[in-house]
Design a binder for these strands. Sequence first.
DNA 1: ACCTGAACACCGTTCAAGT
DNA 2: ACCTGAACACCGTTCAAGT
Lengths: 197, 197
Amino acid sequence: MPESRPYHHGDLRSALLDSAERTLREKGVGSLSLRELARETGVSHAAPGRHFKDKQALLDALALAGYDRLAEVLAAAYDPALPLQPRLTALARAYLAFATENAELLALMYARKHEPEAAEQMAAGVDRSVGSLGRVIADAQRHGEVVEGDPERLTLFMGATLHGIAALTAGGLLDADEAFGMTEDLIHHLLHGLKPR
Amino acid sequence: MPESRPYHHGDLRSALLDSAERTLREKGVGSLSLRELARETGVSHAAPGRHFKDKQALLDALALAGYDRLAEVLAAAYDPALPLQPRLTALARAYLAFATENAELLALMYARKHEPEAAEQMAAGVDRSVGSLGRVIADAQRHGEVVEGDPERLTLFMGATLHGIAALTAGGLLDADEAFGMTEDLIHHLLHGLKPR
DNA sequence: ACCTGAACACCGTTCAAGT
DNA sequence: ACCTGAACACCGTTCAAGT
């Protein structure tokens, strides 16, 4: 740790990302400016330009990091020892928790990005997260606990439902506690359908 | 139609909204500026301030109009003469079409707004749209075509699923044609569930 | 290789003054 | 009642120059 403010920051890139993530969480994307970020990090306003080609590149990097964390959270919540229904409930709750705790970040993750190479990595990030769901479906199909059919479609059906409540909750249209409270019910309907048996 | 450019515009408010909606669709929220809007409308840069307290107020107005149009689209797609499954498929397709044709607007509609009074109207807009779904569920329950239980929860389950694919598609994470192609399947799973019968 | 300072072309918002 | 023009405090981005 150098005594005051050295000419070279050392790890400006990750310092900017950390600062940006905090601002995003506390004040929203609208209040995120490169100049303000530079000020907080004690660096000139032009310095961020060395590490991020433009503002969108920084936002893309934030979103990408978000996908990494989401994939971790889901992987951690995936417990193959659990029966199907609680296994899915745990995954749903994990996603919901991530969505409510990172509402602004989630919006960034699912926004249309402009930089084409970032979009590619974004898709890969989605795949990694959807992977946890896909494993559950494929595994359950093998045990005859889930209907036969294209596992990708089944996974997408399930993913869409989870993403739906998560997005509605993150957007403030659904109360977080309410969403958590109905997760079990939701998974039940997902498994048993709306039609009476 | 006055000959050149009169001092008073006449209906500046709706002219600004029209222009904003076009810009939103063609270039995205990022490229939407009040000054540019004023220029396009042939008015001074300070004029919009008379009709919208700030930029967010204009965005809120756009989102609100979006809810109106979505409610219309859904109401038009709601055909009580159809059997349950095609009735739901039609609603899902209508929402999906709206989402793909108004991707940027949809993001605005489901974003956290700051002006508290707008948030209230926003919630009302959601209710109106969800209303179409709620009617289908309540009606189907009466005919024994859908399981018993809190109709609001069932509606929300269904709404979350539809919103999920729509949001993923609007966000570019799911190809629009692919999403349309799997709509029928999706509704099938919604009705019959993932568990084998 | 990394950062600064000045410069450029934009913003949103406010407010006296004009019609 | 509605709009203008100037002013203010911000932006993002670029680029020569400094370390």
